[in-house]
């Protein structure tokens, strides 16, 4: 029987503790045929599981150009993530996916890219940044503004350094006021303000903004002032999901099933939808 709920088995190949309560995990398919044939688009998500505890939804935060493994990143907040927190290298976890629409990286070709991320929202931005850097000639100026509450809450810090070495890339790190350490060299302030202060001179950019609702809300007027149209502003919706395949009835924002027609939506799309997210 073709069982759409059956996960692939994946071996944990690497675990990195990013912050006191965030880890990123690398996985490879145990089935060699599946490993060979697997592909996805950055921005898609997977349903990851700890056997004995349950399934949980995370963005696939590695680049789709990396063929030997995939990565996901999670914060320890509930039963399943508590169990995932305890996994070790060589352990086996479940994976279903890839699901959802992903970012239209093809359609973004030739445009300047602005990535704005807050807190644990970095993983779904990180995959797109890597993808764009790996296809550097296809995209214009790249700006990344990434902030968290405190210095200790910033994830993928070493990668931010790596990105800043690329051409035509501007990386701005920030922490909320009071979250800085004595030797903090980045900006202090909330992502929208830091972004506004940075006076990014982009022409007709694509903007990907992911973070807490308040961050997104405060970013939109700034983008509006810059003349960025809502159709060029993308986000990834975080509604709770279970099946990932349009059946369990859990993830909808109005008529949009986030697991199928999302999670990536433009602000133009969101403006036409009820605030059910």
């Amino acid at each position: 029987m073709d069982n759409v709920y059956k996960p692939d088995l994946m071996e944990v190949t690497r675990i990195r503790q990013e912050t006191p309560d965030v880890k990123s995990v690398s996985l490879r398919f145990l089935d060699s045929g599946r490993a060979r044939d697997f592909s996805f688009r950055v921005g898609q998500f997977g349903i990851f599981s700890a056997f004995g505890y349950g399934e949980s939804t995370f963005n696939i935060c590695s680049s789709s150009n990396w063929k030997d493994h995939i990565e996901f990143c999670f914060r320890k907040v509930g039963r399943v993530t508590e169990a995932l927190w305890k996994i070790e290298e060589k352990d086996v976890v479940g994976f279903r996916g890839p699901y959802g629409n992903g970012y239209p990286m093809e359609a973004w070709k030739g445009r300047d890219l602005i990535f704005l991320g807050g807190g644990i929202a970095m993983p779904p931005i990180r995959c797109a940044v890597w993808y764009a850097l790996e296809n550097r000639a296809d995209y214009g100026e790249i700006t990344v503004v990434y902030g968290a509450r405190t210095v200790a809450d910033l994830v993928f810090l070493d990668e931010l350094d790596e990105w800043s070495k690329s051409e035509r890339v501007r990386i701005i790190r920030c922490v909320d006021p009071g979250g800085e350490t004595p030797d903090w060299k980045g900006e202090i302030g909330f992502v929208p303000h830091v972004f506004e202060r940075a006076q990014v001179a982009a022409k007709d950019p694509v903007v990907l903004v992911i973070g807490p609702p308040i961050m997104i809300k405060n970013t939109l007027p700034i983008l509006d002032k810059m003349g960025v149209k809502p159709a060029s502003v993308y986000t990834s919706i975080e509604n709770r999901m279970k099946c990932g395949i349009g059946k369990c009835g859990r993830c909808n924002v109005g008529p949009i099933y986030v697991c199928k027609e999302g999670p990536v939506l433009t602000m133009e799309q969101l403006q036409g939808l009820p605030a059910d997210y």
């Binding site: 599981s49 056997f51 004995g52 505890y53 349950g54 169990a83 279970k242 099946c243 059946k247 369990c248």
Partner: peptide
């Protein structure tokens, strides 16, 4: 027809 997916049984 809404449903949940849960793990049943011990760890």
């Amino acid at each position: 027809h809404c449903f949940d997916i849960v793990d049943a049984g011990s760890a």
